[in-house]
């Protein structure tokens, strides 16, 4: 009972986040339009990049054009979710730490991790979510996905997004220890850059690191490998396991961070 009402409470808060964010976006209408254009430019250039390369070659490693296209779209869809639902929060977090506004967040009767990482939503990302997910269906059809794969796809997106989010949360926690948190956001962006490509383009050593210890490559390559080849099934429980580990790690680091924050403020 307590758990259910707790969930309801958090959902109600989230609905307010949606409306405050919408209200905020509407007060900057030019930015809103420009943001949509920026997303489209990014999505477009990502496709042309792959397409132009495949004009001259047949395969990259063992993937043909429509396979890599599916992978790229999967990552673009995740990124669209990420920019819409999360990314603003990472930038605001560094501000809140600097200005001490985190104090107010700590006072609220809601988990501070929740407020810090979910408070800001960017409605301008919604068109891009729709576009990339439609494209994902299109390239899914090009790859002749079976019934089971289609059924698994939404679940895989949620799983990947969860893993993706947790990795970014953990990285962002390091801002507690840095005076200028901006750099960490760039580190996060560089992680994203790595994740935009399938794991097999990287050397064996790096692949191992980025598929386990810092599982950023697993975010896209895990589910897509599994969709193309069922023998990669073990990547899915691995992702689940890592989600659990990262979840606990996040809480651990967060609490350490708060202790540090407390000693830094007087």
């Amino acid at each position: 009972m307590g758990f259910l009402s707790e969930i309801k409470h958090y959902l109600r808060v989230y609905r307010r986040y949606l409306s405050t964010s919408a209200s905020q976006a509407m007060s900057f209408r030019t930015s809103f339009v420009l943001l949509i254009i920026m997303d489209l430019l990014f999505t477009g250039s990502s496709y042309f990049k792959i397409s132009f390369i495949y004009d001259h070659i047949e395969v990259i490693d063992h993937w043909v054009r429509h396979q890599l296209m599916f992978f790229v779209t999967f990552m673009l869809a995740l990124n669209a979710l990420n920019t819409t639902l999360l990314s603003t929060n990472f930038w605001m977090f560094s501000d809140d730490l600097k200005t001490g506004n985190l104090d107010y967040i700590l006072l609220k009767p809601v988990s501070s991790i929740y407020i810090v990482f979910f408070r800001y939503i960017k409605p301008s990302g919604i068109p891009n979510i729709i576009l990339t997910h439609s494209l994902l269906i299109y390239f899914g059809m090009q790859n002749n996905l079976g019934f089971i794969e289609w059924l698994m796809l939404p679940f895989l997106i949620v799983l990947s997004f969860t893993l993706y989010a947790l990795i970014q949360f953990v990285i962002s926690c390091s801002m507690f220890w840095l005076i200028e948190g901006l750099g960490i956001n760039f580190l996060r962006l560089q992680m994203q850059e790595l994740a935009r490509w399938p794991d097999f383009i990287f050397s064996k050593y790096l692949r191992t690191v980025f598929m386990s210890a810092i599982p950023i490559l697993l975010v896209g390559s895990g589910p897509v490998h599994f969709i193309f080849d069922r023998s990669y099934w073990y990547l899915i429980p691995l992702m689940l396991l890592l989600c659990f580990i990262l979840y606990y790690l996040l809480h651990f680091i967060w609490n350490r961070g708060l202790t540090h924050y407390d000693s830094a403020s007087s």
């Binding site: 990259i60 200028e180 901006l182 750099g183 760039f186 790595l194 935009r196």
Partner: peptide
């Protein structure tokens, strides 16, 4: 921070392209 903001992105960009 300077490393992460300015040099890092360029290096990663190069590294990804090299691998590709």
């Amino acid at each position: 921070n300077f490393f992460l903001q300015v040099i890092g992105p360029a290096l990663i960009f190069f590294f990804v392209k090299y691998s590709l």
